[in-house]
């Protein structure tokens, strides 16, 4: 096919063209094409959120005070950490941390997820059989697992957590999956990648048993097919192997504008974070909504433009009102 030849020929163009046009670059070199000095636009797009454990907190600014533990009260708080860069490339990190201990014992999960530790163990054993360089080059740790599902009900059955509520938003689901983080004492102790190659570490890993640290059910949806705006609904479960504090972290640029609020809907109180990220003269807008209930951290993430801000608000309200018992 000729258009395939064009695609292949485009693939060999000079690096300068690639660097100039890269939409995924976080920082850029200066590139000169045909005498025109062009500084690559820095894309300050929000980084994809990852659930993380809070290991150390320094220079924390509390955004909201801790509410009472009364039924319906806010059960989490936002912390903001700003690090200024030398060339506008600093960062802003927002963490939502649960106040109460939300860890769930593994015995409370009755679905097939009980077998995930064995899968992770096998995955790690297979990883050890790879040539050394391939292990080094691996883009993900062999102690995490991702499971895809056709429906949300299948995913919830896989978890098998009795008596929980779940938000049931009726928009086309683009992707449904559970990201599972395995736990091993050896990983916690020897976290530097270099040490992963030592024979002592390998021997320890080969002999140990695995458990689960945490897992997140993630549902991606598109709520506006015309504008490509999307939303994501997450439910995070922390097990007894999780660290002392359970938090969700969001990475932003140093110029991100933030606003928080609390809203009540359906008898529940939600914490909201509104973000405006400047990006090449335009704005990236999104809102994250948090709720902690049944020891589960529910998060809703929605992106929008100025044009469909009202529609996004409607979807947020729908999500908040969609919690149903399973």
């Amino acid at each position: 096919m000729k258009e395939e030849q064009l695609i292949d020929a485009l693939g060999k163009i000079d690096d300068a063209f690639i660097a100039e046009s890269n939409p995924f670059a976080e920082t850029g070199p200066s590139v000169v094409i045909q005498g025109e000095a062009k500084r690559e636009t820095k894309m300050s797009s929000p980084r994809r959120r990852r659930n993380m454990f809070l290991i150390a907190v320094c220079a924390v600014l509390l955004l909201s005070s801790i509410a009472a533990y009364a039924a319906g009260g806010v059960k989490g708080l936002f912390r903001i950490l700003r690090e200024n860069g030398t060339d506008g490339d600093g960062t802003t990190t927002v963490e939502y941390t649960t106040i109460e201990d939300v860890k769930i014992p593994m015995s409370a999960f009755h679905g097939e997820i009980k077998n995930a530790p064995k899968e992770i163990k096998k995955q790690y054993d297979d990883f050890l059989k790879l040539p050394e360089m391939q292990r080094f080059a691996s883009s993900k740790l062999p102690t995490s697992l991702y499971k895809s599902f056709a429906t949300v009900d299948e995913a919830l059955d896989y978890i098998g957590y009795a008596g929980m509520v779940y938000p049931n938003l009726e928009y086309p689901k683009e992707r449904i999956g559970i990201e599972i983080q395995g736990y091993s004492p050896v990983d916690a102790e020897l976290s530097e990648q270099g040490s992963m190659l030592s024979s002592e570490y390998e021997k320890a890993k080969a002999e140990e048993e695995y458990s689960l640290e945490m897992f997140t059910l993630m549902v991606d949806m598109k709520y506006d097919s015309a504008s490509d705006c999307f939303c994501q609904s997450w439910a995070t479960f922390f097990t007894e192997n999780a660290g002392p504090l359970c938090s969700t972290r969001i990475g932003l640029s140093e110029k991100a504008k933030l606003a928080t609020e609390e809203r009540t809907a359906g008898g529940r109180t939600f914490s909201l974070l509104h973000v405006e990220e400047p990006d090449s003269g335009k704005k990236l807008l999104f809102t994250d909504v948090f709720l902690t209930e049944d020891n589960i951290v529910f998060t809703f993430h929605i992106t929008y433009s100025e044009d469909n801000r009202a529609e996004a608000e409607t979807v947020i309200t729908q999500w908040m009102n969609s919690f149903r018992a399973r």
């Binding site: 100039e20 046009s21 939409p23 504008s227 990006d279």
Partner: peptide, 18 residues
């Protein structure tokens, strides 16, 4: 190049160019 090298949706590329 955003469209035919990077295969980005037109809307995204348009936004990045303002």
């Amino acid at each position: 190049l955003g469209r035919y090298y990077w295969f980005c949706p037109v809307r995204e590329i348009a936004q990045s160019c303002g």
